[in-house]
Amino acid sequence: MSVMFAARHFRAEREGDWARLEELLDRVEKQSPRRLSDADLIDLPRLYRATLSALSVARATSLDASLVAYLEALSTRAYFILYGAREPWGRQVVDFFARDWPRSVRAIRWEVLLATALLLLSAVAGYHLVRGDPAWFGAMIPGELAQGRDMGASAASLRESLYGEPKGGGLEVFATTLFTHNSQVAILGFALGFAFGIPTMILLVQNGATGGALFAAFVPHGLGWGLFAWLMIHGTTELAAIALASAAGIHIGRAVAFPGEASRMAAAAQAGRRAAIVMIGVILMLLIAGLLEGFARQLVRDDTARLAIGAAMLMLWTLYFTFGGRRGQA
């Protein structure tokens, strides 16, 4: 009898709060969180904590099993409303492009500058190495990648590769292949970053030197400007994506090597979250680069038009990452 009396007394003291919490949860689930007033929003976490406290007491004192089950279900519902609720998918997408992605890129700006410098300097070095000794070309660009665009190619064949009709058709297949290749390079650069960023930097140097070696084959035939335009139409997006992906990997490696006051795991986790946001955007950039490389570069054969498209894309990315998401940022 005393147990039953205690259970009734326990319920009588608290069931008003439980009913109130249940009513708020019903409103959120059936209508919208926006239907809650300011007072309701203040009450919700308080009632949740009170229900958790009651559940703890009910379990500890072995009260009615049905009461314990009711409180468990009510607490679970409240937990998912308070902590499991997320913004609508569309709003998350808007926030990603309007705020999260450009802010994350700016947060790793020093790594981005390092990755960009490594690409450019290694390209210059690769160019001069091949011009000084053509044997370097084969070491930097395998034959299957060069596809005849090497130091022994004639000016006519090199010009054809820049301005000729695509052979075999299937531009869609070509775009998919290029997108896959570029994605692999970017993802590899990101993934290698955990080893203090060193393998990522080596990969950047390798890719930059490859580009420089390619110029060494075209420049002697007076086609350096044409190659630059041919690459520019997609390269400003593609190389920016690879630089960002590599910078994200270096950012993680730097956090592992120099965690600062935080623990190594905590520093790596924080850097990883920021880098993951950057990488989501990188995939979109690679998709755009693949379309430009597979379609626009083959359909647009005028150097001026190619340069204009490439410069426009470079300006777009520069302005976006420089000014995007600054509103409301301290």
Rank of each mutant, 00 (worst) to 15 (best):
L227P: 09
L36F: 11
R77H: 03
D17Q: 07
L71F: 00
E293A: 13
Q270L: 05
R20F: 08
M285T: 03
T76A: 15
V219M: 02
E172H: 04
R49K: 13
T51E: 14
D64Q: 05
A54V: 02
I288D: 00
Q184C: 10
F190V: 15
R274H: 07
A229N: 08
H128R: 14
L284K: 14
R49G: 02
F323M: 00
S183R: 12
L162H: 04
R109N: 01
G132H: 04
L292F: 06
A296F: 14
M279K: 08
K30I: 02
L162N: 12
L55R: 03
L214M: 11
G235Q: 10
G226V: 03
T236P: 12
G211Q: 14
L287S: 14
T322M: 09
L41F: 02
S2G: 12
I242D: 06
A117Q: 00
V130G: 07
R8A: 02
D95H: 09
V68E: 02
I198D: 05
Q270P: 10
G325D: 03
I277T: 06
S75F: 00
P220D: 11
L316K: 10
G164I: 15
Q147T: 14
G193R: 06
W110M: 03
A60I: 14
A255I: 14
R106N: 15
A305Y: 04
G235R: 04
G148I: 12
A155Q: 10
S104G: 00
I141V: 15
R99M: 00
T200R: 13
G189F: 07
P166E: 01
A262G: 13
L188S: 13
L286H: 15
T176G: 09
A155E: 10
G138P: 06
V105H: 02
A248E: 02
A257V: 09
H221I: 13
A135S: 04
D43S: 09
L44G: 00
M265N: 04
V28M: 04
G90I: 07
G260T: 06
P142D: 01
F10A: 01
E23Q: 06
E160W: 09
A125Q: 05
D150M: 05
G294E: 11
A296M: 09
L244S: 08
S66A: 10
E72V: 10
